[in-house]
Amino acid sequence: MSNWDRFLDSFFNARVAAEYLPKVIEGFWLTILLAGCIILTGLAAGLALAVLRSLGIRPLNWLIIFVVDLFRALPPLVVIVLLYFGLPAAGLSMSGFAAAWLSLSLVLMAFAEEIVWAGITAVPRGQWEAARSTGLGFAQTLGWVVLPQALRMVVPPLTNRTIAITKGTALASVVAVQEILGAAQAGVSFSFNPTPLTLGALAYLVLFLPVVILGRWVEARFAWKR
């Protein structure tokens, strides 16, 4: 067997591919479910924290900054492992899926809060003043005037960060979640052939390329002339 044939047999073995494709497809849907859950809770929690922070209540803001810095500093894998393997010692146990969901949501929340907060502070003070001078209250000004502008500004970094963190769903394979990578690795250990990993990589491309393109579209759609 030539090197080239060996390469083809290792990574593009049709028989192995056919056998493990269904597993990888199952993993594909599980990845989508996990990513969707993380995006929903992570972004919602991040937005909520940024809004809370804009109230300017000192002790509350210290707490928010502490939590945010904590989850920005910790590697996501450490958070997952801590929740999955550490909590049972405290009498609480959660499934691998729940541990991955909660961990990555907390990480996304932390980054989203920082990004949205930066957007809020980047809205010129004059916008607040103009809105308040017409009698709009604090919450109305935030909701109708400041947040729409802040969110538009942060769509690009927020999209990038969201994509980066949802790619972290692959870390869930460590806590026995059969998402794409988990399913592919299982396939490799059963078949003694790395082809399932090729399928996994393809599955990630199928999943994330459209997301990246969507991110671009959103970016263009949300831009406006000043």
Binding site: P124, G126, Q127, E129, A130, A131, R132, S133, T134, G135, L136, G137, W144, V145, P148, Q149, R152, W224, R226
Partner: peptide
Amino acid sequence: NKARQRIGMVFQSFNLYPHMTALGNVALA
């Protein structure tokens, strides 16, 4: 907020809401 409706203010830098049309800017309050 009620009192401020009786006191209009115009700023040096206009401070229009860039994400709303002229009509939207005027209609918001």
